[in-house]
Each structure stands twice: as structure tokens, then as C-alpha cells.
């Protein structure tokens, strides 16, 4: 039986490796390759770790299979009497230590770009696209009035604190310009949620009581799926939304359409141009 079990353990690890190897072809893999510059770097890091861990996995499983097979075929009267090897211990302490430290340090620049505010793309920071408020179970979006120019940090903070009459509102449908970094301010209206766009490899929790800036860049003009990744109650799975990345032109048009819609007074022939305008006059 010993030989059978040695093969059994080898066999499972082969199945595991094969399963991973065929996964991309079977569609059990990333929904798409990352479609943002940061996401591409994250993918690269993922593959780096994947290669290192695969080699380690194969190494340990082969070693395991080998020692089992040797044990199964061992015809000696007695097992080897050994309490270990100091030099082996040193080797298998130092080598993994270096590999692990390398992996850790190699990650830092990408993390810096994504989360350390001083490394954020400044253009995006200076003109946030929208404020996204997660609530049970939807994403409420507030754009600044078209043409609203932010004068510095304090102005943005003021806008985040106090809505303005020209702000535009939507739900579950965030439009952003593609091919340039954009920044949203993420907050939660009730419990904790998480802003997750799989294709862009962006995830950030929305924490009650905090306003968290999140930046991302979509390299293509298309609609990206956007979901919630932190348990937020019974309807957690329902927070289905999309981020539409589009050209600057389309984005502006979209905001214009939104504005017309939002200031619609229900009178067909006049709905187009004038009605919305007066909203601002009072201010």
C-alpha cells in the first residue's frame, strides 16, 4: 500500500498543478487582464508570486512524494537514526527568508502609488469626479455641478461636507473619463461596504464616518462591473452597479444629459435648455 499512497499524494499535486494550468483556458481566471495601469502592475506581482509559490509547491510535493516512496520501499531493518541537520536548517531558513523579504519589498512601490496620498496623481486629486456614498444596498453618486472648479483642498472639503444646488445625482451608474486617472471620494451612509471594480483591480472599503479618496484609471472605454466586497447585510450581493469609462467628450455629454434630466420640469417643449438654467440663478 505504501507505494500506492506515495503515488496518491504525488497524483493530487499533479492534478492541482494541471488544474491551475488549464484554468485560464477554461475561463476560471481573471475576468479580463487588468485594464488599468495599476492593475497591470498588480497582475505582474500576482504572476511573480504565482511562479514562486508554484515552484515551491512542486518542490515540496515532489520532496514529499520522494520521501514517502523511499519509505515505502525501505528494506532496512530500522529507520535512519537522525535528529536533523544543522546546515540544512540554516539553508532552509535563510533562503526562504530572502525570497519572502524580496517579495515583500518588491510590492511597496505599487502600494505607494495606490494608497499613499502624496503619490496620488495630482490632477485627479485636484478635481474629484464624484462623491460615491454606499448604502444598503446601492451606490449613490453625486457629481459636482458641470463646470464647478475646485479651488484647492479646502474647497473640495467644503463640497464634501455640504451638497450644492447644482450637484448631479445618480445611482449605481458612475461615469468617468477613460485613459486618465480619476479620483472619487468614497463614503458610507450606513454600514461598511467595499468599492470593488474587478477589471480595474481596485478595492477600497467604505467606512462609516470616513471619507476615503480612491483613484483609478480605466485604459479602455467600456462599462466595468462594480460590486460590493464587504458584507453589508442581507442584500450584500445586490449592490450591482457599473462604472462607465468613456471619452472626455462622451463624459461631458453624459453630464449634460444628466443635468437636463435632473432639472426636468415635465413640460415637453421647454425641457431642453432653459428650465435647468434657472436653478443656479438664485444662488
Amino acid at each position: 500500500m505504501g507505494k500506492f499512497w506515495s503515488i496518491f499524494f504525488i497524483f493530487w499535486s499533479i492534478v492541482a498543478v494541471v488544474a491551475v494550468a488549464i484554468s485560464p483556458a477554461m475561463g476560471w481566471w481573471f475576468p479580463t487582464a487588468a485594464e488599468s495601469p495599476l492593475g497591470e502592475q498588480i497582475d505582474d506581482l500576482f504572476f511573480l508570486i504565482l511562479y514562486i509559490t508554484t515552484i515551491t509547491f512542486i518542490g515540496t510535493q515532489v520532496a514529499m512524494g520522494y520521501v514517502l516512496w523511499r519509505g515505502a520501499t525501505n528494506t532496512d531493518d530500522r529507520a535512519e537514526f537522525s535528529h536533523g541537520s544543522h546546515s540544512l536548517e540554516v539553508i532552509w531558513t535563510i533562503v526562504p527568508a530572502f525570497i519572502l523579504l524580496f517579495i515583500a519589498l518588491y510590492q511597496i512601490p505599487v502600494w505607494e502609488q495606490f494608497r499613499i496620498q502624496s503619490h496620488f496623481p495630482q490632477d485627479a486629486v485636484n478635481s474629484p469626479i464624484a462623491e460615491v456614498t454606499a448604502r444598503q444596498f446601492e451606490w449613490r453618486i453625486r457629481y459636482p455641478a458641470p463646470g464647478r472648479v475646485f479651488k484647492g483642498k479646502s474647497d473640495i472639503e467644503r463640497w464634501l461636507k455640504q451638497p450644492e444646488p447644482g450637484d448631479l445625482y445618480t445611482v449605481n451608474d458612475l461615469h468617468v473619463p477613460s485613459n486618465k486617472p480619476v479620483l472619487i471620494h468614497l463614503r458610507s451612509g450606513d454600514v461598511q461596504h467595499s468599492f470593488f471594480i474587478p477589471d480595474l483591480r481596485v478595492k477600497q472599503d467604505a467606512v462609516p464616518g470616513m471619507v476615503i479618496p480612491v483613484w483609478f484609471e480605466a485604459s479602455r472605454s467600456k462599462a466595468y462591473e462594480w460590486v460590493c466586497a464587504e458584507l453589508c447585510g442581507w442584500g450584500h450581493y445586490k449592490m450591482k452597479a457599473r462604472v462607465v469609462a468613456e471619452s472626455d467628450e462622451d463624459f461631458k455629454n453624459y453630464l449634460h444629459e444628466l443635468e437636463l434630466e435632473q432639472f426636468d420640469d415635465g413640460v415637453p417643449e421647454l425641457a431642453d435648455s432653459s428650465a435647468a438654467g434657472e436653478e443656479e440663478v438664485s444662488e
Partner: peptide, 21 residues
């Protein structure tokens, strides 16, 4: 071994951005 190695993916912060939860 599998559990240990898969942990490394999530220990790496940038990769964890994607894999978290």
C-alpha cells in the same frame, strides 16, 4: 503547504487589493 503558499498572495498588499474578500 497549499494553505501557507496561498497566504503569500494576500500578504502582499497590492495583490490583496484584488483578492481581499
Amino acid at each position: 503547504v497549499v494553505g501557507g503558499l496561498s497566504g503569500i498572495f494576500m500578504a502582499a498588499v497590492p495583490v490583496d487589493i484584488y483578492f481581499h474578500d
